[in-house]
C-alpha cells in the first residue's frame, strides 16, 4: 500500500511537470466554455432537439462532446508519452511492478479528470446560464456526472495506451470507440446496430449523462476496467 502511494506520488509529480497537461486543461476549458455558449444560443433560438427542455446542465453535456477530446488526449498521453519519449525504461526501473505502475497512472488520471471535469461542468453551465433566456442555473449533479464520466474515459484511455503504446494508434482507437463508430452504427436505424452502439463507451456514457442511466454507467465502467486489464496484461507480457 505504501508502495502504491509512492508510485501515485511519483506519477502525480510527473503529470504536473510537463506542459502537456496545462495545454490540455486549458483547451478543455476553452472548448467547454465555447461549446456551452454556442449551444445556449441554439437553445434560445429553438434549434436544439430537446425543444424547450434544455437546461444549463444539458447544454454543458452537449458541449462536452468537444471538450472531452482534450481530456482524452491528456489521459492517453500520460501512458503513451512514456513509450514515445523512451521514459518507460526509466520509470520501470523505479517502479518495477508494471501492475502497480498502471494502477498509479489510472489513479492519477482519474483524480485529475474527475476534478477538472467537475470544474468544466460548472464552468459550462455558468456560461450557458449567462446566455440562456430560460433553463439557466447551477447544476452540480450534472457537473459531478461529467467528472465521473471523464474519470472513467480517462482510465479507458490509459488502459488502451498501455495496450497499444503508440500515441497515434491509441488516439485513433479511442476516437473510434467514443466518437466515430456509434453514429455510423446508428445511421441505418436497425435495432441490432443501435444495440451495439448503446454498448459502446461514448453512447453508454451519454445515456448516463443525459438520463442518469445506471446501465450506461455500468457499461462505461466495464469498458474502463476491461481496457485497464488488457493494458496490464500486455504491459506485463511485452518487453519495455
Amino acid at each position: 500500500m505504501t508502495l502504491l502511494r509512492a508510485a501515485i506520488g511519483a506519477e502525480w509529480i510527473k503529470l504536473w511537470t510537463t506542459r502537456t497537461v496545462w495545454w490540455a486543461l486549458v483547451a478543455a476549458l476553452v472548448l467547454m466554455a465555447a461549446g456551452s455558449g454556442q449551444y445556449a444560443l441554439y437553445a434560445n433560438n429553438g434549434d436544439l432537439d430537446d425543444q424547450g427542455t434544455a437546461t444549463a446542465g444539458t447544454v454543458a453535456v452537449m458541449a462536452l462532446g468537444f471538450a472531452q477530446l482534450a481530456f482524452l488526449a491528456l489521459a492517453m498521453l500520460v501512458m503513451t508519452s512514456e513509450f514515445s519519449t523512451g521514459t518507460i525504461r526509466a520509470t520501470l526501473s523505479w517502479i518495477p511492478s508494471r501492475g502497480r505502475l498502471l494502477l498509479a497512472k489510472c489513479a492519477v488520471v482519474a483524480a485529475v479528470t474527475f476534478v477538472t471535469g467537475v470544474v468544466a461542468g460548472v464552468a459550462g453551465a455558468a456560461v450557458a446560464t449567462s446566455l440562456m433566456d430560460s433553463g439557466g442555473g447551477l447544476d452540480l449533479t450534472t457537473a459531478a456526472k461529467i467528472g465521473l464520466y471523464l474519470a472513467l474515459l480517462g482510465v479507458l484511455a490509459v488502459g488502451l495506451g498501455a495496450a497499444f503504446r503508440g500515441p497515434v494508434v491509441t488516439l485513433v482507437v479511442l476516437l473510434m470507440l467514443v466518437v466515430a463508430v456509434p453514429p455510423l452504427l446508428q445511421v441505418p436505424d436497425i435495432a441490432v446496430l443501435n444495440g451495439i452502439a448503446d454498448a459502446m463507451p461514448g453512447v453508454a456514457g451519454d445515456h448516463f449523462l443525459r438520463d442518469g442511466s445506471v446501465v450506461g454507467l455500468l457499461i462505461l465502467t466495464a469498458w474502463a476496467v476491461a481496457a485497464a486489464v488488457a493494458g496490464r496484461m500486455l504491459l506485463m507480457k511485452k518487453d519495455a
Binding site: A6, G9, I13, K14, T85, G86
Partner: peptide, 26 residues
C-alpha cells in the same frame, strides 16, 4: 542504473525528473 541517458521526458526539468524518481522510492 543508467541505460539510455535520453530516457527522460524532454519537457520535464532535470530536477523534476529526479523528484518524481525520489518520490517513487521514498
Amino acid at each position: 542504473s543508467l541505460l539510455e541517458a535520453k530516457a527522460v521526458h524532454p519537457g520535464r526539468t532535470g530536477r523534476n525528473h529526479l523528484l518524481a524518481m525520489a518520490r517513487s522510492n521514498g
